[in-house]
Amino acid sequence: MQKKQITPGEIRQCISNILQFIGEDVNREGLQDTPDRVLRSYTELFSGYNIDLEEIFRAKFADVQSFSDVILLRDIEFTSMCEHHMLPFEGSVDIAYLPNSLVLGVSKLARIVDCFSKRLQIQEKMTSQIGNAIQDFLSPQGVAVRVRAKHYCMVMRGVQKKRSVMETYHYTGSFLQDKASFLNLLF
């Protein structure tokens, strides 16, 4: 059975319905264009579903003069959306990998983060997706990923802990046997 494609008009109507549900007047000046603005912002916020990972990984370089030490890119900023409450979480990603014979263009590591952060998900899933994508496409000796994030589902509602930061880690290959080496690079 073919899945029904939802139209932009149907999305606008859903946003209008939500505004009415919370008690707003959808005809007041400040809200007249809100369904359109939300539609455009969702297109941007969830653009990761349309990013082609294979295209990102085409920027691999083999002429690295036998470079075989750790490559680390720190503090890659991101914003994502929690799949449980559709509220943002934001923070930074640190990625390290130990190349076999190929290295990736440095900006491509940030694009990988964008690919997975611009989706509905949980932080744990995003962390492993980033690490596994690098492992699968680049075949390094190992990958290590740390994600640190503030979750607005904890800040704005529920327990309301404004300063809490969640950290998640994912390791592959050589970093699985030596997690301390990644942590030593970070601290």
Rank of each mutant, 00 (worst) to 15 (best):
K125I: 08
Q20C: 11
Q13S: 14
Q123M: 02
G142R: 13
S128L: 03
A96R: 07
R148E: 14
F21Y: 15
G91C: 06
Q160T: 00
T79S: 12
F89N: 05
K150A: 07
L120M: 07
N17R: 10
M154P: 06
T7Y: 14
Y42S: 01
L39P: 01
Q65M: 14
P140A: 03
D25P: 05
K4S: 12
A96H: 09
R119V: 01
L176P: 04
R119K: 08
E55Q: 15
M166F: 11
L104C: 10
G142T: 13
S164G: 01
Q65K: 15
I112A: 07
Q141G: 14
R157Y: 09
V106T: 10
F175S: 02
V113H: 07
S128C: 09
V145Y: 08
K3G: 05
I51A: 04
P8T: 09
I112Q: 03
S80Y: 02
S92R: 15
A62F: 13
V64F: 00
N184H: 15
I51T: 08
L102R: 03
K3N: 15
R58Y: 09
E55S: 13
A149F: 04
S128H: 12
H170F: 11
G158N: 08
V147L: 12
L19Y: 07
E24Q: 01
T43A: 15
Q5R: 15
H170K: 00
R146M: 10
F116D: 04
G173N: 01
F89T: 03
L53K: 11
S80C: 04
E24N: 02
R119L: 07
L39C: 06
K4E: 13
D63G: 04
K4I: 06
R40S: 13
S92G: 12
I130R: 04
Y49R: 08
I112M: 09
P140D: 08
Q32F: 09
I18N: 05
L98S: 00
T43E: 15
M1C: 09
Q121K: 12
S47V: 12
K125W: 07
D69N: 12
Y171R: 02
G173P: 01
K161E: 12
I6P: 07
E83F: 06
M126P: 02
I56F: 04
V106W: 14
F137M: 03
N50P: 07
Q32T: 06
E24M: 05
D114R: 06
